[in-house]
Amino acid sequence: MSLIATDRVVPATDTSATEGRIVWDAPKSLWWFGHLAGTIIAVTVFPQWDGVGVMLLLTALTVCAGHSVGMHRLLIHRTFEAPLWLERALVWLGTLVGMAGPMGMIRAHDMRDWHQRQAECPHHPSHGAGFWRDAWWQMHCRFDLAHPPRFQIEPQIADDPVLRLIERHWMAQQIPLAVILWALGGWAWVFWGISTRIVLSLSGHWAVGHFAHRQGHQGWRIEGLPVQGYNLPGLGLITFGENWHGNHHAFPHSARHGIEPGQLDPGFWFIRALETLGLARAIRLPDSAPPREGLTRVIPLAAPRERLINEP
């Protein structure tokens, strides 16, 4: 069976997208459990509202500006352009989410995307397992292919000295923030602003990915693929637009995820704010690239397509 290649994933003649095994990823798992212990300390030893407020504020900053905009829409998909210093800053904020460094995030994202574009996709990259098993697999394990494809990151990213430094010490990026939090609010702010935030962010990221690949609203589908993306209405504000995953599957090149009326997308609002400040340009929308092969409309549009997906 021939395998589809993507920009960063190039299968070899012996590559298989299905032959592999799920193994416990000790560093990733111990990282999560360590911060779970810190979360328990925050809740039981330091049950204070200022800590909760710091956690919520930093979660919004790192997940919206860092993960959704910096890592996902800019670094991975190049849906807009920004000055190099700003790109590095946003990626650093995304690293603070606690999931991986910039290269690790690109690899995890693109390998999952590659799997989901093949004729057959295993349960791990498709989120096909049950709720608890998928949670364990995604947050504590990895899927090792017996014959993996070649993975190539473009030199613009792979050779960037700042991104390479962040990647090499991605877990240690929490330390400067922890020092600041300790100076301002003591250990309570450290446990709330670091450990509790990381556990909430990682668990929330998995939950959105789990449900957004199983069922929900669909505006479009990609015919011929075993894995579809779904929208999760009502979660736009707390996921910063990442809940519109069905739209993202349809238009992965678009900086805007919430493309239909009423689909709130704070991540895109942030990009528009950067544009107003002269810090973002060449912002791509659904019509900025040809439609994906197999793209099919599921629900009729409530407004003309050109107006709907290109309006500010």
Results as ranks from 00 to 15, higher is better:
Ser2Tyr: 12
Ile4Trp: 03
Thr18Met: 07
Trp24Thr: 13
Asp25Val: 00
Lys28Phe: 01
Ala37Ser: 11
Thr39Ala: 13
Ile41Gln: 08
Val45Cys: 12
Asp50Arg: 14
Gly53Lys: 05
Met55Asp: 04
Leu57Trp: 10
Leu57Ala: 15
Thr59Asp: 01
Cys64Ala: 13
Leu75Thr: 01
Glu81Trp: 04
Pro83Cys: 04
Met99Ile: 07
Ala100Ser: 11
Met103Lys: 09
Ile106Ser: 01
His109Tyr: 11
Met111His: 11
Ala119Tyr: 08
His123Leu: 14
Pro125Asp: 09
Pro125Ala: 10
Gly128Ile: 06
Gln138Leu: 07
Met139Leu: 15
Met139Lys: 01
Asp144Gly: 02
Pro161Val: 10
Pro161Phe: 03
Arg164Trp: 06
His169Arg: 12
Gln173Ala: 13
Pro176Lys: 07
Leu177Trp: 10
Leu181Ser: 10
Leu184Ala: 15
Gly186Met: 06
Val190Leu: 07
Val190Trp: 04
Ile194Arg: 01
Ser195Lys: 03
Arg197Ile: 01
Ser201His: 04
Trp206Arg: 02
Gly209Arg: 04
Phe211Leu: 15
Ala212Tyr: 00
His217Ile: 12
Ile222Thr: 03
Ile222Tyr: 03
Leu225Tyr: 03
Gln228Tyr: 04
Glu242Gly: 06
Glu242Val: 06
Trp244Val: 10
His245Tyr: 08
His253Gly: 08
Ala255Ile: 08
Ala255Arg: 03
Arg256Asp: 04
Pro261Thr: 09
Gly262Val: 06
Trp269Arg: 12
Leu274Arg: 01
Glu275Ser: 15
Thr276Cys: 13
Gly278Gln: 04
Leu279Cys: 03
Pro290Asp: 11
Gly294Asn: 06
Leu295Met: 10
Arg297Pro: 04
Ile309Arg: 11
Pro312Tyr: 04
